[in-house]
Structure formats: structure tokens, C-alpha cells
Design a protein around this nucleic acid. Sequence first.
DNA 1: ACAGACTATCTATCAAGATAGTTATTGGCA
DNA 2: TGCCAATAACTATCTTGATAGATAGTCTGT
Lengths: 195, 195
Amino acid sequence: MSLRYALLALLSVEPMTGYELSKQFGSSVGYVWHAPDSQIYPELRRMEKDGLLAGEEIPWGPRGRKTQYRITDAGTAAFREWMNSPLEYSRERDPAHLKAAYLEWADPAAARGQMLAHIAYYTTCRGQWEEKIHELQTGTNAMLNKRLAAMPKRDHRRITAYKIFTYEGLVAKAQVEIDWARNGIKLIDSFDDDT
Amino acid sequence: MSLRYALLALLSVEPMTGYELSKQFGSSVGYVWHAPDSQIYPELRRMEKDGLLAGEEIPWGPRGRKTQYRITDAGTAAFREWMNSPLEYSRERDPAHLKAAYLEWADPAAARGQMLAHIAYYTTCRGQWEEKIHELQTGTNAMLNKRLAAMPKRDHRRITAYKIFTYEGLVAKAQVEIDWARNGIKLIDSFDDDT
DNA sequence: ACAGACTATCTATCAAGATAGTTATTGGCA
DNA sequence: TGCCAATAACTATCTTGATAGATAGTCTGT
């Protein structure tokens, strides 16, 4: 159900087409929520049917046309309600840690390789998130600027701070994964040496 | 697909029935992988059909019977192969951080409540994981002792170390979430005060 | 003898997510 | 003018996961 709210979040800034939304899922919100277009288009239609969005067919060139979705009052209310309701925590499901618990089954080389891949993956994530923080701090984030333009000036600092807070949390998470995997390599090495 | 490998991991220690396995998902492995029995029973049957497990009907009381599954050589090989193959990282999907990015939409009280719930949830997790570490360190973990009994003595330290390493990673993750939410509360308070 | 908790298994349905396509138009550039 | 990348949208299938129940036998204690 979070896809629905991720879409409402984006459309709360400005109306967008399904295509534009699916692009967003590859950049901005994409860092906290990802979805392919094959999930987005049907969900948008469902949301329109539920009255959360209003779709408008707009022409695109001589023959082409596209549907731009605008959030309705009901949509805004639904989003606000979701924001005010507690989050349900679903059970842990963490393949990386599941595998780590049985690392003695892997060859030392493969185990090391997986730890390095873990480090590489989270290093990339951390880099992208740090870049986001930089954009937010320097006022060069397009989405944020659009959002701020539609909001009273006194809320600007608060809105920006929450975004930075979010990405800082993600950076910290990535850092923990990196540190953990580094310890993993040390551990693997220590047992590989004294064979 | 990880459910399959979580089951193989458990059955690599000793044969178990579907019921026993589903109990395990509520305790030991349950902390890194959870699944309801309605997923476990069909998966076990599929795995038997695929030759990874061998099921044996064993009587239980006068009329009752249960199926105990034992890992086959093909099952062991499949598990080892999974352990040696790199993990695919799926895209981020993190409702807590998604919500945090739009925290200005929530009432300060609700926002604070969610941060407190986040802290409470991860504090519970951290406690359980720390307890697991304690069990592993003091040799009081039943599953680990069974596994060690079936393994050459020289591997004992390594096997135990990997388990502890896993849970230490989980504890660190939980700690980061707790610290993050604490910062969140500070942030919310700072904006709520100067209204 | 019966209640009640626990063991054991199975089914059905639904939502969510992953994967891999198909179709068609636009707009820039060589 | 023709090619190609980008825009725009849709469809189908499959797997996974979530939720709620149905069924039946066992074991312990009163």
C-alpha cells in the first residue's frame, strides 16, 4: 500500500504524468521507494477510481496524448491521514544477514566476495544519499524548490530539515552495513589464515 | 526464493517437521527471516518434488501422523551453491524513511508518536538480538549446540563466530534506527517549540 | 469423560512485487 | 528523409507475501 502514498507524496508537489512519476522513482523518492512503471500505471488508474487523483488528458504533439494526474482534496486528506497514522512494522526479511549466519558453508573466497559486494553496494547508496543531502543543503534540489515555492516561507526550514534528516538516516544505515561487512572480512581472513 | 534457503539452512542441522520449522521461524531464524506456516508447508512439498528434501511419514500417537523432512545431498549442494553465489540487492523499500521525508504533513504529536514507536520497535529487536548473542557466547543456544555436535571440533569457533557476527550486525542496525529516531524527536520538538 | 491447549497440516484468497514484453508517438539530428 | 533515443502507456505472467481460516488428532489435568 505504500506505493499509493509514495505517489500521493510526489503528486502533492505538482501534477505529473505516469511517465514522469516513474522517472521520479528512479531518482528522488526512488531512494526510499522503488516501483516499475508496470505497477505505477494501474495504481494511478485505481487511485483515480478511488477519487484520490484527477486525471486530465493533455495533448502531446499532433497525435499523441498523455494523462496528467492531479491530487484531489480527498487525496490530500488520505495522504495526511496516512502520515498521521502509525506504521506497521513487518517482520525482518534480510537475505544478507541470513546468509551471514551460515557463512561457514561458503568458500572463504566467495564469502569475502559477498562482503566486498555488500560494501560496494552500500558505498554507492551512501554516495547518492550524501549527494542528495548536499543538494538539499545548497538549495539545488529541483523537487524541494518546487515544493517550497508552494509553501509558506516559515515552513521552509522545517520541510528542508525533515528531508535532510531522512537522508542522514539512510547514510547512517549504509555506514553500519559497510562497517559490518568490513568486520566480516576480518573474521573470514582470521579463520582462513590459520587453516 | 530465500524462504527455500532458510529452510535448507535449518534442515542442514537435523530433520524436522513443517510444524517444527514454522516454530523456528518464530524464534531463531525468525529474526532474519519470517514466514507463516501457510507458506512453509507448500514450499516443503515443492522442495521434496525438486529432490532437495526427503519427507518421511512418521506416526504420532495412535491415529495421527506427521511428515519429517530430511535434507538430501542435492539439497546440501543447492544450499552450498546459494551460499557461494552473490546476493542480488533489491531496491530500497523503506516505509519508515519514506514517511520521514514528508514529516511536515503529520501533526507534531503524531510525528513524535511514530518516532517513539520506531524506538520501541528497534529496542525490542535489539534486546532479542543481544540475548541471542549472549546465548551463543555462553554456549546455551540449543540450535547451535546441535549444529556443533555434527561438525568437527576445529570448526566450532568459526561457526559460532559467524553467528555472533550476524547478530552483532543486527544489533548495530537497530541501534542506528534508535539513534536516528531520537534525532527525529529532537527535530520535531525544535520546530514545535518556536511556533 | 471432557475441556482446553498444543501439535500438525492444509486451503483459499488477496495484495504486492518482479520480469518481460508490446505498441505507438515525438523530436532531434545526421 | 530516415533513423534513433526518449516519451508515453499498457498487458501478461509469475512469484512472493499477508491474512484468515478449516480440520483433525494429541496430551494433560480435573
